[in-house]
Design a protein around this nucleic acid. Sequence first.
RNA 1: GCGCCUGUAGCUCAGUCGGAUAGAGUACCCGCCUUCUAAGCGGGUUGUCGCAGGUUCGAUUCCUGCCAGGCGCGCCA
Length: 554
Amino acid sequence: MSSQVEQLEAALKAAIGRAISNGEISGQSPHSITLERPKNRDHGDYATSVALQLAKAAGKNPREVAQIILNQLKGLDSISALDIAGPGFINITLNRSSQAELISIILKAGKDFGHGSALAGVRINLEFISANPTGPLHLGHTRWAAVGDALGRVLSAAGADVTREFYINDRGNQMDLFGASVEAAALGKAIPVDGYQGQYISDLAAQVVAGNPAIISLPEDARHPAFREAAYAVQLKDQQRVLDNFGTHFDIWFSERSLHDEGAVEHGVEKLRTKGHVFEEEGATWLRTTDFGDDKDRVLTKSDGSFTYFSSDTAYYINKRERGFDICIYMLGADHHGYVGRLKATAACAGDDPEYNIHVLIGQLVKIMEGGQEVKLSKRAGTIITLEELVEKTGVDAARYTLIRYPVDTPMVMDIDVLKRNTNENPVYYVQYAHARITAVLRNAAELKISVDLKGFDSSQLTHDRENELLGKLAEFPRVVASAAEMRQPHRIARYLEDLAGTYHGFYADCRVLPMGEENATPLHIARLLLCTSTKVVIANGLDLLGVSAPERM
RNA sequence: GCGCCUGUAGCUCAGUCGGAUAGAGUACCCGCCUUCUAAGCGGGUUGUCGCAGGUUCGAUUCCUGCCAGGCGCGCCA
């Protein structure tokens, strides 16, 4: 894949190893060498600062160390120039035609280009959204609906075996209150104190009654659960429909009730008890999470014998691990960050490594602007914005892309008015436009009956600076995907795509791709068309990782 | 009080395991479509990287303290 980079890294490492065994440098060989792409193109295609890092232990100045490494670094025909710059950076310039070989690598890999094996064999449970089935999904869920889905795709691309899971909080007081609210609405009675308000409750009531008119005349003690269950079913189905429309799909919808029905909660408590972190006090059963850094111990079973919400969470974690997942990723809103400590402590209590087996991502809240004003979200005032409404206003691609584009630990502001615009203020269009533009060029090539085939590819044709720049950018894609997966940051893909799109537009402006007029297609035209095709593949693959479409025309 | 997140250009934000002259978009000014999608390209202007110390060849990045903003700290769910 990016084998050139890997080869270079290996060659550097070998060169350092030889210098050390010669005694030219003292110290240890670093466990890994990182090549970076310099911001400034005068610094070559790749650069490394190993010489600076080794200088101290070697007792020599960094430029000397760099020279020693270079002396050992011979016989790589893919390199056209090696320079020592500044305090001791080694700058590497690749042989251009060798760099152009990337095109055949991309075209042969196709949809798989960018995929890697860093997480091969790792089973990951990715849990996100996990809303109560007591109302529509709103803005607070929307960020995760987009980012969680993209992260799932990115982790899969890194080779992980990913299961996306939605935990349905379908148990407890809130469900009863929800049922009672819908029931009251159906019967024309007042909504209970602390009950659920809003138009959607009346709508649900109407749907429930329409689906089963006899429900109203049930005796009271049968009517109450009947309303709760019917409303639950309708609301859950609605959430599933909205997410499906948003392009976010789950492998498992996991019911909290099912944990209790199958005795998993008791099982979880017993398992923790065998690990020695459970104790009884004041009639309640506790988990000593303070053994592992939590700020207070947590109750598993209340003094009245019933289970706490925390006990469900604990049991659910244990259940996931027993189902064979190596890593459990939780994506929570900032208003739940207080749970991180106890979740990690729970994992530790279960005998797991909280640094590896569990990973909690905290997403800061999203603010929304419309008409130049912040929309204050308030259930009481009826100004909640649902995921569905957001999509209606902006479209799936713009909403998803914008939500994914920022790291989740920064609070973000979504400006609805900007998202509605089809301009460059809306970066999704910038990227999509590049894809559509390439597609148009390739369409025209097909009409001219130019055969765009690797057989006719002469890599030495690509000598223009713009071509070189574009090739370099394409070569970065696999590393971007790998780091997005490793750091759980899908926004890196989006930023990369914007960068790549910009590089392509620059190439397009300066390099004519198709023959003009009656001109025949030359090897240069073919090579450029193949470069375009490669770029199209990478943009499409990147957008796919975000769940955003790659349009053929715009 | 304790804990988590944030503070980078007028605005919205990137910034790879600590690297070279801190970057995009937007806004503002100036150029570029008698041949491939101008939703584009090129050029110009914009910085106390919140403040103060520390670690080192080197800090926007790591550590400590402080300032400002957001959020959270139930035998609730």
